[in-house]
């Protein structure tokens, strides 16, 4: 059988490519070998929380929202109220002194019109940033970016669905 130079070239090319493919998949193959013994038990254990009542489940919140709740209860609830209805204990003092109320997130007419970007601007820059009173202070320098994001995620749970 005669062997042409072209077929040799083809074979080398094919062999080389096959080699590269193997290399390419190599990572995952070797990875699988390493962890073959390391128990499915561990994986189950990681998620045992989902099978039992954990703090998130009790409040029907996602993990993000639960982190937001901790921040909200600490910083915001004194005025905006624990349920976001603008009835925190300090809201009555604001009403008496300045005739204003904190925003009511549970209000079914005004709240659904709120844009998330607007909430974000109000949190970061205070009431003045969205054309309201200065009695809502700016939190942009106190809370970090990720804290503000989870906070908004939690505040969204107060807003009634249209």
């Amino acid at each position: 059988m005669r062997i042409s130079s072209k077929s040799i070239l083809d074979s080398i090319l094919a062999f080389g490519l096959a080699f590269i493919i193997l290399q390419c998949g190599g990572n995952s193959v070797s990875g699988k070998k390493e962890i073959a013994g390391s128990s499915a038990v561990q994986t189950k254990e990681v998620f045992f929380a989902d099978m039992y009542n954990n703090p998130y489940r009790e409040a029907h919140l996602s993990r993000h929202q639960y982190r937001g709740k901790l921040i909200y209860d600490h910083y915001c609830a004194v005025c905006h109220g624990e349920n976001g209805d603008g009835n925190g204990f300090n809201s009555f003092n604001l009403q008496d002194s300045f005739g204003i109320r904190p925003f009511n997130f549970a209000d079914s007419t005004a709240a659904p019109l709120l844009k998330l970007a607007e909430i974000k601007r109000a949190i970061e820059g205070g009431g003045r940033a969205v054309g309201k009173s200065q009695y809502m202070p700016p939190w942009g320098k106190t809370l970090r970016d990720d804290e503000i994001i989870v906070l908004i995620d939690y505040i969204r749970t107060f807003i009634p669905m249209l």
């Binding site: 995952s28 990875g31 699988k32 390493e34 962890i35 390391s38 128990s39 561990q42 994986t43 990681v46």
Partner: peptide, 22 residues
């Protein structure tokens, strides 16, 4: 976080990984 740091495959790396409060 646990899991496997030595691999680039998504499933293998996240096997047994600890999440959130865990």
């Amino acid at each position: 976080h646990g899991g496997n740091g030595g691999t680039l495959s998504k499933e293998d790396a996240h096997e047994g990984m600890l999440k959130a409060e865990m």
